[in-house]
Design a protein around this nucleic acid. Structure first.
Length: 910
RNA sequence: GCGAGCGUGGCGAAACCGGUAGACGCAGCGGACUUAAAAUCCGUUCGCCGCAAGGCGGUGCGGGUUCGACUCCCGCCGCUCGCACCA
């Protein structure tokens, strides 16, 4: 009698047994004895509320690796924690009056229970949350150590300022140059900010990328570009004319303007010098020049993000200054301020050489600044080559450039620098795009920066004995700005140096700081005296396999690499010696889903009623709003959850209504678009194994996977099919290595055994190289083959039992609950989760013959079976004599026969 | 705008080092079982021509390298991610 597989009973049962046996606990170095260690880590989540199936993919991938390593005899560390500080908690506080702490810990509790439903092999005894004072206490201690080491300093930095809310805005809070809540145009302000000196490690962060050979090339390339080492020249333009009236121009000390360029070879094509809006000279001129002040204000409204600045229309203002060309005292250039010059890169000043740079060209054309081309593209005629709206930024031969004429770009760069040095006006330099890391945030829900400001003594570190500087709980979010700064008592302290009245720093740390060392804390999560024990961190680090989204390719990963080096150099960490926290990195794709929207529909005024402060449609209660069309109102277009939709005859309707649904784009699962499938409900309906199998099955792991009902069905069918086969077999499976009866090594039984042993090889390989979707396909193939082998003879029973046992083991990292139930039914000992990974019998897995396609002029004409490793000459003869090939060789001459052993034969004839 | 990646049947995809394009899953079609449905099982499914054998075309588009290109190179088009205060 076969029974359906009941995941609702089976899954919790095994989770309880695993927990009781403590199989997921990482062993201490002493306990582990001879075992090799494997530290498997997924990027820890922000506790945003509830987990949807989209989150599960990341953890499922890490879990497959963790379980696979354990089966292969490793001592595995697979922990979980919470990136618990951040803006959404404060937004919840402002919108709904909930305290960030309560909101965060409630979310953590809910999400922990949800995550546990997935049956992940996680050592929950090591759970951490970055908002725990026990965690951030150590972060503050490290901050102080970095400070002492010279890796922390203070500097003025630009921020987005909302003039209505009187608050600093994050870039994501600036929408089209306006504050997201107030709608007011943002301004740029400068604040004194805490900085981490990432640039101290620029050279090493760049060079070490080469050794990270288990990182995706694209991530290494992105980091390389981000660090942006470039060779060029820094040199000075002397100011010849200080502007229309003396005091209005540059100050007395500013006698020259320093610029950076990677293309000194185009210096004879210079048509202007441009300064950043916040360059000291620009600012000084603005004090007395209204047009320049206007320009600065306008440029400030673009926000501080590089993308916004770059996308904005280029504009500038003539500052009225004139400078001398460094190679010709009599050649004067105008000085402008321009919004596309970044003060944070180089010297905050450039020279514009329009023919060779698109931005410079657009700018010159806009303001009618004259220019000429100086780089001749290969093959172009100097007499006719002209630049109008398309700049030529590539290499070429220099012309129109006096002593540089005729030189290649490369030689001209060297020659120009040589001349600048000779004139004492500049020198060759290395320039980095990488900037130091501004870590100050004017927010409550973050790690307090342990510093004290004293009017007399300046800025002093909080004495280590006074750590942690804990966040006060009694804060109000009733007015904009940082609640820490508004708190009546919290910031008032005595100066640790003079004992006088002083104030605490009210800025908190960027949450990227929290996530820059959590992987090290996991190695020793309960340590009170130190962030972690050096020996334990030395044993576990680096993380052997890190899994996370590619959206973290630059910032998080770069900051963690910096932090690991800084921790090492401040004596917190002995290893890894090269300062690299993550040996192997995998960036996984997202889970995407269709979006559903209630279609907007015009409404007459008498169909609308008021409910509280909302407008709704009479009868349906749907939200309504004022409209511009012929009708005064309309039903608001709102996003709907997948479970609020029903499919009737291929058309989507809102459940229980007559109203059709608009299907929107397939997008990343997100709360805002409501295209989420909640994990609890799904696990209840289909089980965790179905979710895990599905998110790993349909797409290659690095690519996005679309969550679809049909994909779920495939996974569900597979679970049922595996269970049906195991139950129908109804007897213990042969143990690994058990001798097979003769009948199992013949005919169909042998074929199944060969397939099963080949599956071991393939799946092992596929997991090792993150081809989970291919491993899944092998699972389907094996199941299909098992189902095909009929009969109750000795051979069939052995082969089927063996294949089922192998199948159970191969799917166990993916579907641990089902595998455990099958293992028990097949008479396996202990847990399949801790059983050794199966080994393929080489004799069974090996192939003795191969199918070779035969091509004539690259087109396939026939196939032959040949023994593996057959001699080239034999294969060549077989191919030439093949009946299906001969007709194609008639009337032509065979020029060449290419035989690639065991792969292909190609006959070239004409 | 700058940087990076991706693009293969009706759909998700496979093809690992340049060597049979479409494994495997979904959906579809035909059939078996069934009073019926579900479930299950068998067969079939890139397009075009052909009764068939077979032929021709085909991996976003246009070129190139090669005996041979989904794979390498050049140029386009489309989508996705990052751009330093979202995490």
């Amino acid at each position: 009698m076969s029974s359906r597989y009941n995941h609702r009973e089976v899954e919790p049962k095994w989770r309880e047994r695993w927990a009781a046996a403590g199989i997921d606990r990482a062993l201490s170095p002493d306990e582990a004895k001879g075992k090799k260690k494997a530290y498997v880590l997924e990027m820890f989540p922000y506790p945003s509320g509830r987990i949807h199936v989209g989150h599960s993919r990341n953890y499922a991938m890490g879990d497959v690796i963790a379980r696979f390593r354990r089966s292969n005899g490793y001592n595995v560390l697979h922990p979980m924690g919470w990136d618990a500080f951040g803006l959404p908690a404060e937004n919840a506080a402002m919108e709904r009056g909930i305290h960030p702490k309560g909101w965060t810990y409630d979310n953590i509790a809910a999400m922990r229970e949800q995550l546990k439903l997935l049956g992940l092999a996680i050592d929950w005894s090591r759970e951490i949350a970055t908002c725990d004072p026990e965690y951030y206490k150590h972060q503050q201690a490290m901050f102080l150590a970095f400070w002492k080491k010279g890796l922390v300093y203070r500097k003025k930095q630009k921020v987005n300022w909302d003039p209505v809310d009187n608050t600093v805005l994050a870039n994501e809070q600036v929408v089209d140059g306006r504050g997201w809540r107030s709608g007011a145009p943002v301004e740029t302000r400068e604040l004194e900010q805490w900085m981490f000196k990432v640039t101290a490690y620029a050279e090493d962060l760049l060079a070490a990328l080469e050794k990270l050979d288990k990182w995706p090339d694209k991530v290494r390339l992105m980091q390389t570009n981000w660090i942006g080492k470039s060779q060029g020249a820094r040199f000075r333009f002397e100011i010849s004319d200080r502007g229309p009236s003396g005091p209005q121009g540059a100050s007395e000390d500013a006698r020259s303007i320093e610029v950076f360029t990677t293309r000194p070879d185009t210096l004879f094509g210079a048509s202007f010098v441009a300064l950043a809006p916040d360059h000291p000279i620009t600012k000084r001129i603005a004090e007395t020049n209204a047009a320049v002040a206007d320009f600065i204000a306008k440029a400030g409204q673009l926000g501080t993000s590089e993308a916004d600045i770059e996308k904005a229309e280029k504009f500038g203002v003539d500052l009225g200054l004139r400078v001398k060309h460094p190679f010709d005292e009599s050649w004067e250039l105008p000085v402008w301020a321009a919004n596309f010059v970044l003060s944070s890169y180089g010297t905050g000043a450039i020279f514009g050489s329009p023919a060779g740079d698109q931005r410079d060209l657009d700018f010159a054309n806009k303001y009618k600044l004259p220019f000429k081309p100086v780089v001749l593209p290969p093959g172009a005629d100097p007499a006719t080559h002209a630049i109008t709206t398309e700049a030529y930024a590539e290499d070429g031969v220099i012309y129109n450039s006096r002593f540089l004429d005729g030189l290649s770009t490369k030689d001209a760069i060297a020659r120009a620098i040589e001349e600048l040095v000779k004139l004492g006006k500049g020198e060759a330099t290395t320039q980095w795009r990488l900037r130091d890391w501004g870590v100050s945030r004017q927010r409550y829900w973050g790690c307090p920066i342990p510093a004290i400001h004293c009017a007399k003594c300046g800025v002093a570190p909080v004495p280590e004995k006074d750590l942690p500087v804990a966040l006060p709980n009694d804060v109000k979010f009733d007015k904009p700005g940082n609640p820490l700064a508004h708190h009546p008592t919290w910031k008032h302290v005595d100066c640790p140096q003079c004992g006088g009245k002083a104030e605490r720093e009210t800025d908190t740390l960027d949450t990227f700081v929290d996530s820059s060392w959590y992987f090290a804390r996991f190695t020793d999560p309960d340590n009170e005296a130190a962030p972690f024990d050096k020996k334990l961190a030395g044993y576990w680090l680096p993380v052997d396999q890190y899994v996370g989204g590619v959206e973290h390719a630059v910032l998080h990963l770069l900051y963690a690499r910096f932090f690991t080096r800084a921790m090492r150099d401040c004596g917190f960490l002995d290893g890894p010696a090269d300062g690299e926290p993550f040996r192997s990195l995998f960036t996984q794709g997202m889970v995407v889903h269709e979006t559903y929207r209630r279609a907007p529909r015009p409404l007459q005024a008498d169909y609308v009623e008021r409910k509280g402060d909302r407008l709704v449609e009479k009868g349906t209660g749907f939200a309504a709003e004022k409209a511009d069309g012929p009708q005064p109102y309309r039903v608001s277009p709102v996003w709907l959850l997948p479970e609020e939709i029903e499919n009737r005859d291929g058309t989507l309707y809102e459940k229980g209504s007559l109203f059709q649904i608009e299907t929107g784009a397939v997008e990343k699962m997100s709360k805002s678009k409501k295209n989420v499938v909640d994990l609890d409900a799904f696990v209840q309906d289909f089980g965790a194994d179905v979710a895990r199998w599905f998110v790993l099955s349909d797409s290659p792991p690095e690519r996005d996977v679309e969550w679809t009902a049909s994909g779920v069905k495939g996974a569900w069918n597979f679970v049922q099919r595996v269970w049906t086969l195991v139950e129908a077999h109804g007897r213990p499976a042969p143990k690994p290595g058990e001798a097979a009866p003769q009948a199992a090594n013949e005919g169909e039984a042998l074929a199944l055994r060969q397939l099963a042993h080949r599956a071991i090889q393939s799946v092992t390989d596929d997991i090792e190289s993150f081809r989970f979707n291919v491993a899944v396909a092998r699972g389907y193939e094996l199941v299909n083959a098992i189902a095909k082998l009929k009969g109750d003879g000795e051979g069939a029973v052995f082969a089927r039992g063996e294949a089922l046992r192998i199948l159970t083991q191969l799917i166990s990292p993916f579907m641990p609950h089902l595998a455990e139930e099958c293992w028990e039914t097949l008479g396996g000992e202990g847990f399949v989760a801790t059983a050794p990974w199966p080994a393929a019998d080489p004799a069974l897995a090996a192939r003795t013959t191969v199918t070779l396609p035969i091509q004539v002029n690259g087109k396939k004409r026939a196939e032959i079976e040949a023994p593996k490793g057959a001699a080239e000459a034999d294969v060549r003869e077989l191919a030439l004599q093949h009946a299906a090939v001969k007709p194609f060789l008639e009337g032509v001459t065979v020029r060449k026969v290419i035989v690639v052993p065991d792969r292909i034969v190609n006959i070239v004839a004409n």
